[in-house]
Design a protein around this nucleic acid. Structure first.
Lengths: 156, 156
DNA sequence: ACTGAAAGCTTTGTGTT
DNA sequence: AACACAAAGCTTTCAGT
């Protein structure tokens, strides 16, 4: 499932990844089309699912979320049942904002966000460690973030 | 720098994190205010920087980006100069969409996205490994993503 | 924080190149 | 496909309450 995007489509995608709130009038100017066909292209990109959704990005620090981490999780077994148990538990925990199944030493990588180290520690001890199928945990606290592109490279 | 948000502000933030394209009219209905004061609150949240930006989220698979990874990077030394050299090199590489300085075994965690395993391998071998201050690399390929919340937990 | 009105823009549709 | 133009519908702003 791969679509043929021309140069204009790519430009639209690049712009909307970085600024979803741009008006269609402005967007059309930047890509060099008139408003009508520009909007048509955006609609098509949405309908085909190339554009999945639009999100506001908040500043974690300003809403009292000072701690952001990656956590490597090893499970006690790699069978389907254990994975299901783990995922069901993960789904219930609001502070876990991402959960990826990965190759390598651990089985899963989590992205966790919390108010401070104290509440992070309590979260990990009381909730994540307590999941029956969890064997081992390794936390990496993010000290600072140097790059956080909201746009992906568009190939071809 | 922390702001006092009431229940309505939190509801606005929650909604906009999940759907930045909602109209003000609809948003005002969902939070139970009329359009004018609702818009005022959104503007204030933008001005204070609590809302940082708005982004379109694309489907990587549909634009031909099949490989997404985490990479742990260890540097040859933890001094300022080496870190600067590393960050300057990282900034130039489009496929690296995130770079975090973290505690733990490695020094940095990267988020990398590429067309396929072949081009990923070439990217790592020819570009990332070649950075003079890089000592060791460990890639974890994301097999699947089970949770990817675009909204963070709002404390209090 | 609300209502109500006015201005401006977005968006849609038609006909044309 | 894209354009220009016009019409309809929102969004947004600005009064006054």
């Amino acid at each position: 499932m791969n679509y043929k995007l021309d140069q204009i489509d790519r430009k639209i995608l690049e712009i909307l990844q970085n600024n979803a709130k741009i008006t269609n009038a402005q967007l059309s100017k930047e890509v060099g089309l008139s408003p009508a066909p520009t909007l048509e292209r955006v609609k098509k990109l949405e309908q085909t699912g190339i554009i999945q959704s639009y999100h506001a990005k908040l500043d974690p620090a300003k809403i009292g979320l000072g701690v952001s981490t990656f956590v490597h999780v090893g499970l006690k077994g790699h069978n389907k049942e254990n994975i299901e148990i783990f995922l069901n538990a993960i789904r219930e925990i609001d502070e876990i904002i991402e959960c990826h199944h990965v190759t390598g030493t651990g089985d899963f990588v989590l992205r966790v966000i919390a108010k401070d180290i104290t509440s992070y520690q309590r979260l990990m001890l009381e909730k994540v460690s307590e999941i029956s199928v969890v064997d081992n945990l390794q936390s990496m606290v993010i000290l600072s973030t140097f790059k956080e592109k909201k746009s992906m490279p568009l190939p071809l």
